[in-house]
């Protein structure tokens, strides 16, 4: 099996960047045996790996392995309970240690601002789902317009019945969209108060009964994590399945 990071010691391409931790070097344990180097710079410690080639994104398996490796290292750093600013996957500073230190010096203030932003905070991911079929059953009993349209589908000849069927589907879709928007606003307002910052993520169209209604990454103060958890428990008790994961390195909130 090809190693993820084959090193030809005679050829030095650069340093792969994992993350930067706000601590002195001696507080970070357990990385040396993995080949990850810990390099102190002023008030930070950088987790890097020497590499002898640039990353090719053509090999899908290699890319998956790289992402996994990157996540493992960043999450291990996070377990130290120290502030961690993760780099995006695939960043390499070309050259040797002096080029790396030049880069660190040049970007120190920017990293400092990012560190201030995420200190004592962590990223959590929230997904809330609903079952539109249950709402459709409710609508069929309460919504007069839909009931009338459904009746017309059954009364009419084939051509008119087809158009009334399409009209019924359009009206139903409209009602579902309106309800989805109302629920999104309701849950967003509930979550908003205990979250420092939000990034709204893409909603994946699910097949089957459960559909994603809300998908956000949240930057949360560590002492607000349980409050967010309580709010999400309450939402789940109302009948809306919740997927709540974290803490993650704050990829969505650092520049």
């Amino acid at each position: 099996m090809d190693p993820l990071f084959p090193i030809n010691k005679d050829v030095m391409e650069g340093y792969y960047l994992y993350c930067v931790v706000e601590t002195a070097k001696q507080f970070l344990q357990g990385f040396l045996e993995t080949g990850v180097e810990i390099i102190p710079f002023q008030s930070f410690t950088f987790l890097v790996r020497p590499v002898d080639s640039l990353i090719s994104f053509d090999d899908k398996q290699k890319v998956e392995d790289l992402v996994r490796d990157h996540q493992l290292v960043s999450e291990a750093a996070l377990k130290s309970n120290l502030p961690v600013v993760p780099f995006a996957v695939g960043n390499i500073i070309r050259g040797g240690k002096s080029e790396l230190k030049t880069w660190m010096k040049k970007n120190y203030n920017r990293l400092l601002k990012n560190m201030e932003k995420i200190r004592d905070r962590a990223e959590y991911n929230v997904k809330i789902f609903w079952n539109p079929s249950e709402y459709i059953v409710q609508l069929s009993k309460t919504n007069m317009e839909l009931k009338l349209l459904k009746e017309k589908c059954q009364d009419k000849q084939s051509g008119a019945a087809y158009l009334y069927e399409q009209r019924f589907k359009k009206a139903l879709e409209g009602e579902l969209e309106n309800q989805a928007v109302l629920l999104f606003q309701k849950f967003y307002a509930k979550i908003r108060n205990c979250v420092t910052e939000f990034v709204i993520d893409k909603i994946k169209k699910e097949e089957g009964k459960k559909q994603m209604l809300l998908h956000v990454s949240c930057l949360v103060n560590k002492d607000h994590e349980s409050i967010l958890g309580d709010i999400l428990d309450e939402i789940e008790r109302e009948g809306y399945p919740v997927c709540f994961t974290g803490p993650w390195p704050a990829y969505s909130f650092v520049n």
């Binding site: 009419k156 000849q157 084939s158 051509g159 008119a160 019945a161 087809y162 158009l163 009334y164």
Partner: peptide, 12 residues
């Protein structure tokens, strides 16, 4: 209604 029926048939 007659136009709805004709239009509907054509689209169907």
């Amino acid at each position: 209604d007659e136009q709805i029926e004709r239009l509907g048939k054509a689209l169907l």
